[in-house]
């Protein structure tokens, strides 16, 4: 991919342009909730947008693969059923997504293509313009530098903004991105070398603050070669609450289950998928009652095999982790079973 073009835009100019866009297209952006936390949701004016956030605790994959979504609806009739796929998604803009979540989407893009294309996901991706915001200030749980998940990216966005104080440094990543700037009359200046230097300095500072915890290589080798002692998995399995939180908040996790819902006796209904978790024992139980991963230990092992084995890294082109650190916060087995913690445990073992 060719290096993206760079421009600078005064912040208020950019937001004005975005505001114009909102009149015609749905814009999803970060807003403050009552409790001070940030969430992403459709906004009506640029004023609603907050910049006072590091990230949403709930990963943004939900806008592309909602926690529950319709696969199709059906109407049972005499001798046949009428089936209907859900409507195509409308164009929209996602503003303010962080690099780690975007890298997570890249991971899911790769997965949902493949031999069978999951158009429910892919169409949502196609119809969404991505304006990402690089991170100047990480949380104390962030480690994206260890997983190629940030703080800023080389590709994957339509536009990538870096906050330089008064203005944004804008990387234009696609034709759609450039079109956005033109369509909404966002006044751009060519980026100067000092702007790029300033960004480098900011990113460098950001790097410094990150937990230098996830030196993945040793853990990857141990897991790939099945060299982790069983006792280590035993202990982790006993600790695990099997809450499934780590998989729900992971930008790279996408497992789902499928169920039908009917409306009374009308013969009408919907087939849904909903997020599932490999950390639940019901995930693999078979018709015979046999369950290949009946123990939490086997499920924890599975999760890390999927995240960190070379077999998967080769298949997906990337580890199943982008360093967003959400699994650290979400874990009931406090700071024992998140990616950095396990990587550390495996590094020490053997």
């Amino acid at each position: 991919m060719q290096a993206s073009a760079k421009v600078t835009v005064a912040k208020h100019d950019f937001l004005e342009g975005l505001g114009r866009c909102m009149k015609e297209t749905t814009v999803i952006a970060p807003v403050k909730m009552k409790d001070g936390e940030v969430t992403f949701e459709p906004v009506r004016t640029a004023k609603q947008i907050t910049f006072d956030y590091v990230n949403d605790h709930d990963p943004l994959k939900r806008f592309f693969m909602p926690a529950r979504e319709e696969l199709f609806s059906f109407q049972n009739a005499r001798g046949k059923a009428l089936l209907k796929s859900p409507p195509l998604p409308k164009p929209r803009v996602l503003f303010g997504i962080r690099s780690c979540d975007l890298q997570g989407l890249a991971h899911l893009d790769h997965f949902f293509q493949g031999a069978f294309e999951d158009q429910l996901y892919l169409q949502r991706r196609k119809s969404t313009l991505i304006i990402s915001l690089a991170c100047n200030e990480p949380l104390d749980t962030c480690f994206c530098i260890c997983c190629n998940g940030g703080p800023f990216l080389e590709s994957g966005f339509d536009l990538q903004l870096t906050d330089l104080g008064e203005s944004f440094l804008v990387d234009i990543g696609s034709r759609a991105g450039r079109k956005f700037l033109d369509d909404w009359k966002v006044p751009c200046q060519t980026a100067k070398r000092k702007d790029e230097q300033l960004r480098q300095a900011l990113m460098h500072k950001c790097d410094e603050k990150m937990i230098p915890t996830a030196y993945l290589a040793k853990a990857c080798i141990q897991i790939t070669n099945n060299r982790v002692r069983e006792e280590v998995w035993d202990e982790m399995g006993a600790e695990c609450f099997s809450c499934g939180g780590c998989t729900h908040v992971c930008p790279c996790c996408s497992c789902f289950d499928v169920f039908d819902c009917t409306e009374g006796e009308t013969g009408q209904g919907t087939r849904y998928r909903c997020w599932d978790s490999c950390q639940y024992s019901g995930f693999t139980r078979e018709a015979s009652g046999h369950n290949p991963r009946a123990k939490a230990k086997e499920r924890v092992k599975r999760r890390f095999y999927h995240k960190l084995s070379y077999a998967y890294i080769q298949q997906d082109g990337h580890p199943g982790c982008v360093g967003c650190g959400r699994c650290i916060t979400v874990c009931e087995a406090f700071q024992q079973l998140d990616v950095p913690a396990v990587v550390k445990r495996l590094r020490r073992d053997g």
Binding site: D35, G36, E37, H57, F241, S242, C243, G244, G245, Y280, T329, V330, C331, E332
Partner: peptide, 14 residues
């Protein structure tokens, strides 16, 4: 989960 909650601090159980 609600991250700002003083007790649950961004966690939920199954």
């Amino acid at each position: 989960p609600q991250r700002s909650h003083p007790l649950s601090r961004g966690t939920l159980c199954t």
